[in-house]
Structures are given as C-alpha cells and as structure tokens.
Amino acid sequence: MSETDSLTLKFRCPKELEGRIPQPVPAPMGVPEWVKSMPATAFSALNQAEEQTVKRCPPFIDAMTTGFLIPLICDLKVEDGGISWDNELPPGGAIDFPRSPISFHDVSQVTGSPLFEADRFLLKFHNLWTIEAPDGWALLFTHPVNRFDLPFTTVTGLVDSDRFHDSFVHFPAHWHDTAFRGVLPKGTPVAQCIPVKRQSWAMQTSAFTEEEIADIHEVRDALKRETGVYRKRFRA
C-alpha cells in the first residue's frame, strides 16, 4: 500500500441513512458563493489604488479548502426564538442513531467560559457519520474556516479518530446571530474536518543570523517588486 493510498478518511453511516443524508464533501467543493463572486481586486480609497482582495490570498483560500466539510442533514427553520425541521428519518436498525438534526448542551457545561449565557443553551449539530482516520492521525473539527457569514460558531475539538471511530462525533456550536430569521439550508457546512498527524514538537528560539537577515531582505524586496510571490515561490 502506498502512502497516498493510506491517507484515506473512512466515512460510514447506518445502512438506513445511505443516500438519505448528505455526504461529507472535500472542502474545495464547499467554497461559498460569496468567495466565488467577490472581485479579485478592489479600489482602496485610502491608498488611491487597486488592491488585491482576500480572494487572491492563498493562505486564506487554502485554509478554506483543507480537509472535509460535514453538512447539515436537513433544513432548519429559525423563527420566534425556536428552531424546527421537517425531516423524517427511518428508525435505527442494527445501529441506533439520533433522528433529529440537532440537540442542545445545557449551559452548565460551559460555566466559567466565555460561552456561558445564563438564559441560553448551546446548540449541538448531529453528525450521523463515523469517521476513521489512518493510524497516527487525529482529526481537528472546527468551525468552517472563514465562514463569518454563518449564524453560528462551531466549537473546536481534536479527536484521535484513528482509535475512536466506532461512535458518532457531534458538534457543539454557539448560535451568535440572535437576529437570524429564516432557513439554514440542508447541506450547510457545520464543521470542517482537518487531518492532523500526531507528533511531538519541540520549540526553538533565537535571534536572526546575518544570513537569515539577508534572506528576509531578499523576500521583502521581492514582495515589493511583484505580485504573487508567495503563490509562485512558496506555496506547496
């Protein structure tokens, strides 16, 4: 088996749900429309010149297109301080599973944290896929990167999914947009899943050497002379 073959995440769902719930998707397939439609450059009134937007920033885009996105399993209707849905799932067979798209965490579970609000619950998005990572890899589950447009913020967690893969991992979230009214559509990404190799790291600190100072000046000069230096010379 080649290294490429071994770098596979295995998503599994109950047989009753196959074809009835949206599948996880590679993150590049979930780039939102606002990124696709935004201009590559925009006029800066401050600098009186055209400036590149974040659409032309490789780190911004690369972060959004890393890993996989876990989708919301059905439409959620938000109105009058409540959340409702119309989604009939079959009962569990060999494996029991939640039949609702969401549940809630009691606020006591975040006592003492910035998420605590005495009169509000934390939302929990149900994920009906188990996820198995290759040996030595963990999975970072976080809010879909740079998705500031979403009315919620998913709480970040790191799971050793090479070992823990025979149960569902659900996603707590803070619903921060209390003014939101309408429908959160089926397929909306509720979490981004990024593989992380489990390794031990050490830290080293030092002052720049003369050679390193020369390298820094060379890169800075290149950045001033031309556009796309990072993308052309450094992006993997």
Rank of each mutant, 00 (worst) to 15 (best):
R198Q: 14
Q52M: 10
F11W: 10
P98S: 12
G93Q: 11
L9D: 11
E33N: 06
S100R: 05
N47P: 00
S100D: 04
F60N: 02
Q23T: 05
M29T: 00
G19K: 07
A202E: 13
T8M: 11
D166M: 10
A45C: 00
H126A: 09
M64N: 04
R198H: 12
N87T: 00
E33T: 12
P91Q: 08
I21T: 08
K36H: 09
E88K: 09
V107I: 03
T178R: 15
T154W: 11
D135S: 15
N87L: 01
L123T: 10
D106C: 06
D149W: 04
L17F: 01
Q199H: 07
K10M: 05
V78H: 02
I213E: 10
V159W: 12
G157Y: 10
Q48S: 13
T53M: 04
T8D: 06
E3C: 09
A27M: 12
L184R: 13
C74L: 03
I216V: 06
N47G: 00
D160L: 09
A222H: 11
E210H: 03
P151Y: 05
P22N: 00
P151C: 02
F234H: 13
R163T: 13
A207S: 08
L7W: 08
K124A: 05
D62R: 11
I102F: 10
E3M: 14
I73N: 02
D221I: 00
I213N: 00
T65W: 04
I73A: 05
V145T: 13
A236G: 15
K55W: 00
E212K: 06
T227L: 05
V78E: 03
A63F: 00
Q204A: 11
P151E: 09
A40F: 00
I83H: 05
A191W: 14
L7R: 15
H143M: 08
V107S: 02
R120L: 14
E18Q: 07
S161I: 02
L150G: 05
P185S: 03
K10T: 14
F43M: 04
I102S: 09
R147N: 08
